[in-house]
Amino acid sequence: MARGAYRSQVGLWSWPILAVLLMGISGGALAAAPGIAVVVHDPALAAGLDRASLARIYRRWQRIDTAGRPLVPVNLPADAPLRRAFTQALFRQSPEDMRGFWDERYFQGVSPPTVLASPEAVERFVRRTPGALGYLPDCRTPPDLVVALRLRWPRAAGIDPFGLCQEGD
């Protein structure tokens, strides 16, 4: 009986500890999951940037900031996992789904954002170009770049975000 009572006491103690441990492990994993950092050249742009205006900028509808300075958004190639995740996070669509939209914009005389080959090229471009904005995995964002906004990694993107943090390590 005494052994049984001891066992039940251990059981009562163990569940909360186990639960806390599991939460810690899963919470740690979630905390480590990278988001998408929107990086900008001008700190002033970071102050007023929200999702709606970021979407307007990347649809090339908004072309100036509130002070009237031209904005220069850049994209990664359509097949880049980060581009796919960014498009999904901001527009809830894949780059392929947005082709029709861009065909219509071409007809209206509007071209899509310039495409750069890699996150490293985005870093370089944003650093040296006034009005530039781009996106990087926040786990790989250099500390000297201004992060204007962080987007959650979209579930629908179907891409392992951890791989982007390990690339180039």
């Binding site: 100036i64 009237g68 031209p70 220069v72 071409y106 007809f107 209206q108 005389g109």
Partner: peptide, 16 residues
Amino acid sequence: LFAGWDPGGRWRLFGE
């Protein structure tokens, strides 16, 4: 033929 001129400021021109 679509033709546009966008100097990067507030103004731009477009013609079809």
